[in-house]
Amino acid sequence: MHWVFEPGFFSSEPVHVALVIGGIAAVVSAVVGVFTVLRGQSFAGHALTDVSTAGGSGALLVGISPLLGFVGFGLLGAGAMDAIGVQRVRGRDLATGIVLGAATGLAALFLFLDTTSGATTGATQQILFGSIFTLDPSEIPIVVVFSIVAVGMIAALYRPLLLASTDTDLAAARGVPVRLVALGFMAALAVAVGLSALAIGAILSTALLIGPAATALRLTNRIGAALVAAVVIGVGVTWLGVLLSYDSYYWVSDQNAVPVSSLIVGLVFVAYLLSGLPAIRRLTGRRTVMVVTEAEEARLRGQRVSSRAAVRSDGDSPRSRRVL
């Protein structure tokens, strides 16, 4: 056991805080992430992390908690994307990209001012790549509150969100307020991104959001199982990352521990690749999606098209307008 858990792992307070906040962030990210991947909004999710970066660095500048900056700017960003039309498939990547570009510009400015004002050292590194071992235990209550809000929103929206994520037209026909659901989801996404930005850094938080969810969705088709699998994978890679980083203080000779965020991202990527192995797929009973029928084939090809091309409003079958 000693060579797995190096001395002091269980008694160190920074480790406790890292495990708690990392775990909470992983759970929220995984739950929100499953819907993000289902809705094909990985780019929006990632863009929100960059928007959060601007918020986090802005928060440092005025001296408030980075978490408030992350979440506050994330919510603003979500609203901006909604306003310029991320909910429509057409041109959505461009609208997302523009918000992202403008936000990174703002982040560049804030970080520049952070650095030149001299108030904070290591701002760039702290905001962008996180510093899970230096988190303040007093952050835990606010983290818990935000995570309850995010998961609560997903739980409240669960069924309309699922319907809207798989077939927008059907959802709209059944009276689901699609736009409102989408906006609510973006808000939950912003909170989730803010939380994981705190844990593993703003620009890497995409990993916790997308990685476990995409992996889970490769393993199972059922949404419930996917949510559970994503949470397990997310928490698993986060805790393993914390452990390995802690251990690396002892293993790497030159006092430079491997950054915990990088380890977590690496583990996430490995998990994703593993889930594609035929052996693992056989184990979970999920086959590679095969083109089975003409309709299915058309759907699959339509999906590739609709993600980049327009969806004409006239004479269009509901199938192709599905948000994917």
Binding site: S42, H46, T121, G122, L204, A214, P259
Partner: peptide
């Protein structure tokens, strides 16, 4: 796989590897 999810993962993987290299550099910031 899903195109956008894969893109997101490749993106963060690159950043994470970069962070590892830079953390061993003295001129980090």
């Amino acid at each position: 796989g899903r195109n956008d999810a894969v893109t997101a993962l490749i993106l963060v993987l690159g950043l994470a590897i970069g962070a590892v290299f830079l953390s061993s550099s003295s001129e980090y910031e």
